[in-house]
Simulated scan of single mutants.
Amino acid sequence: MQLKKINKARYRKHLNIVIVSCIASLLVGSLGIAQLLIFLFPDQEGSHFHWNLLGVIVSAITIGAVLNKWRNHPFMAEVTYVWELKQTLNYIARKLPKLNQAAEEGDVTAMNAMQFSYAGSRFLWQLDDNTLVMDELAISQAKLDALAAKHNVTLNADRFEKQDLARF
């Protein structure tokens, strides 16, 4: 995965549209399905929890299927890219203890994965206007830069490939 520049305003606008659409679809879909099921299969005791739950589940699955079907549409380009980037960064975060150990030993792949993680996190935090932990990120980046200098490695986030992490 490569880091690429995206239009922040367009991303925020499209993300907000997707979120509002999902919320509205979940609300209308779950209530509509539940009301239809209650009408078709009334309960004399008045407990319709299972029909309401089924309405929410069916609506959520439908929304997920629609999002998955439309994920490659140009309207969803930025939203999908950020979603995939977050998944990749979470994958790296789960492997971080092993990556840190390998980086200490001079492993270039581990260092480039960490570089990608730091650069991707910085990108996401700036995209979401979440700059509270940038100082912490700068400290981690400085440690990584020192390790790279110690092992005479040139860091390059563009060299990161997710499949390279399988051995960690």
Score class of each variant (00 low, 15 high):
Leu132Ala: 12
Asn90Cys: 05
Met111His: 02
Glu78Thr: 01
Phe160Arg: 10
Lys4Trp: 09
Arg71Phe: 10
Thr109Tyr: 06
Gly29Glu: 04
Asp128Tyr: 10
Gly46Lys: 03
Val56Ser: 04
Arg167Glu: 13
Ile19Ala: 14
Ala77Lys: 03
Pro42Val: 10
Ser117Asn: 02
Leu37Asp: 08
Glu84His: 06
Ile139Arg: 09
Ile6Tyr: 10
Ile17Gly: 13
Ile17Tyr: 15
Met76Val: 02
Arg167Leu: 04
Trp125Ser: 03
Asn156Cys: 08
Ala149His: 07
Phe168Ile: 03
Ala113Asp: 13
Ile23Thr: 08
Ala148Leu: 12
Thr109Asn: 06
Trp125Asp: 05
Leu27Lys: 02
Gln2Lys: 14
Thr80Gln: 04
Arg159Cys: 11
Gln126Leu: 14
Phe41Lys: 04
Trp51Asp: 05
Glu84Ala: 00
Ala60Leu: 00
Ala142Gln: 09
Lys150Trp: 01
Asp43Tyr: 03
Ala110Lys: 02
His14Pro: 13
Met1Lys: 09
Val18His: 01
Gln141Glu: 15
Leu127Ile: 12
Gly32Thr: 00
Phe49Thr: 11
Ala146Asn: 07
Leu31Asp: 11
Val82Glu: 03
Ser30Asn: 09
Ala142Val: 04
Gly120Cys: 08
Leu54Cys: 07
Lys95Leu: 14
Ala110Phe: 07
Val79Thr: 10
Leu27Glu: 08
Glu105Trp: 03
Phe49Glu: 11
Ser47Trp: 15
Gln163His: 13
Leu85Asp: 14
Asp164Thr: 00
Phe41Trp: 12
Leu96Met: 14
Ala113Lys: 01
Asn130Gln: 13
Leu99Ser: 06
Leu85Ile: 13
Leu54Ala: 09
Val66Ala: 00
Leu137Lys: 06
Ile19His: 07
Leu137Glu: 09
Thr80Asn: 10
Gly29Cys: 10
Ala60Gln: 00
Val79Asn: 10
Ser30Trp: 06
Val20Leu: 12
His14Met: 12
Leu67Tyr: 12
Phe168Asn: 09
Trp51Lys: 05
Leu3Lys: 05
Asn68Trp: 05
Ser21Pro: 10
Glu161Lys: 14
Ile38Asn: 02
Asn16Lys: 04
Ser30Glu: 14
Leu132Met: 09
Asp128Arg: 00
Ile33Met: 00
Leu144Phe: 15
Phe168Pro: 06
Ile57Leu: 14
Ala9Met: 05
Ile19Val: 15
Phe116Trp: 01
Ile6Pro: 10
Glu161Phe: 09
Ala65Asn: 03
Asn16Phe: 07
Arg10Trp: 02
Val133Leu: 14
Val133Trp: 12
Tyr118Ser: 04
Trp51Arg: 10
Val82Cys: 01
Ile61Arg: 00
Leu85Lys: 08
Ala93Arg: 02
Arg122Asn: 14
